[in-house]
Amino acid sequence: MSDTDAYDALHRDIVSGELSPGERLVEEELAERLGVSRGAVRSALQRLDHDGLVVRERNRGARVRRVTPREAIEVLEARAALESLAAGYAALRRTDAEAAELRALTAEMARLHAAGELLSMSERNAVLHRRILEISRHDVARDICSRLHSQLVRFQFRTILAPGRSPRSLTEHQAIVEAIAAGDRKAAERAMRKHLDNVARALDAVAAGERVAS
Rank of each mutant, 00 (worst) to 15 (best):
E57T: 14
R124W: 04
A187L: 08
T4V: 15
D197L: 15
E117S: 11
E178T: 03
T4G: 09
R137E: 07
S2K: 13
S2C: 10
L148V: 04
A181N: 04
R79N: 09
V177P: 03
V212I: 15
L119V: 11
L76A: 09
V55N: 06
G183L: 04
H50G: 15
L45I: 02
V64I: 09
A9V: 10
P21C: 06
M109D: 00
G88Q: 08
A72V: 08
A115M: 05
E98P: 03
S16P: 06
R193M: 09
A87S: 08
E27T: 15
I14G: 05
S2N: 12
G52S: 07
D139H: 13
R58A: 13
R33Q: 15
A44D: 02
N59G: 12
V140G: 06
A86H: 01
I73K: 13
A187V: 06
T159L: 12
M109L: 05
R111I: 03
D139G: 15
E123I: 13
G116P: 00
T68K: 06
V153Y: 07
V75T: 08
D204T: 13
L128R: 02
L19V: 10
E57L: 14
R142Q: 08
D49S: 15
E18G: 15
Q174P: 02
A188S: 08
L34I: 06
E189C: 07
R137H: 08
S16L: 09
S136E: 04
E108M: 11
N198L: 15
S43E: 07
R185I: 04
L170I: 03
A100E: 10
A62Q: 02
L34M: 05
H195N: 00
I160A: 07
A207K: 02
R56K: 13
A182N: 02
A72C: 08
E123S: 15
V199H: 00
F157C: 11
A99D: 01
L152G: 04
S166V: 14
R42V: 07
P163Q: 10
D143I: 10
L25S: 05
L102V: 09
R185P: 02
R168K: 13
